[in-house]
Design a protein around this nucleic acid. Structure first.
Lengths: 107, 107
DNA sequence: TCATTATTTAGCTTGATCGTTAATTAACGC
DNA sequence: GCGTTAATTAACGATCAAGCTAAATAATGA
């Protein structure tokens, strides 16, 4: 991973954010599957995936003729850590973090 | 606040990320102070502040001839919430979140 | 009101980003 | 090896981001 600005830059595009969210929800997916979901040519998606790769947000592995993409936890950790470092700011008064975690417990 | 991509886009520039971090650390500051810290013309910084304002990351209030800028907690919350929504991903195995919070306790 | 200080807006230039189609690389099965 | 499928790279055009200088706006204070 590099600096946070590169991570944020990678996530500043709707297509790329959607890809990351989908990979987090569904796990490893081939590039072709991601192309099919986005209304976009394969080369365009390939370029987006390259941006995500270079930012350290996703990784790919070869599976026959396909390339399976998945999210790199470290990159997400970096963002989470940043928000936690500045928790004093967004946590004003009531403990939102606790509330959020409590919500998870119920699920 | 709008969508997360706009928030991420605003933070994808080193100057703007530095401004946000400084405002979080030092609180409300006049635009001129932010210009002085960055090696950049006043118009350039003004434009950056506009981007941050439009993304909902900062707010400004008038103080005589100056404008005092500060961070909007809601925007930071939005990012924190997003990471927490996908906590299952970056939290792999050991509880990093707990570790981070425990660190805060010590301070 | 007039000069000063603080900040933003306007106009311009340069470089990056995002999409397209066409061509290339890589791995598989026959 | 050859054709097929999957994905990337190349090359191009259009739009957007970020810097600058100069000009405009806003509030203060003599």
């Amino acid at each position: 991973m590099q600096d946070l600005t590169q991570t944020f830059s990678a996530l500043s595009d709707a297509t790329r954010l959607a890809v990351v969210e989908r990979l987090m929800a569904e796990g490893e997916l081939p590039a072709g599957n991601l192309v099919a979901a986005a209304e976009m040519s394969a080369p365009a998606m390939s370029r987006h995936l390259k941006v995500l790769r270079e930012a350290g947000l996703v990784q790919s592995r070869v599976d026959g003729t396909r390339r399976l993409y998945s999210v790199r936890a470290e990159a997400l950790q970096a963002i989470a850590d940043w928000t936690l470092d500045h928790r004093a700011f967004w946590q004003a008064g009531l403990d939102r973090l606790e509330a959020h975690l409590a919500l998870d417990e119920k699920e």
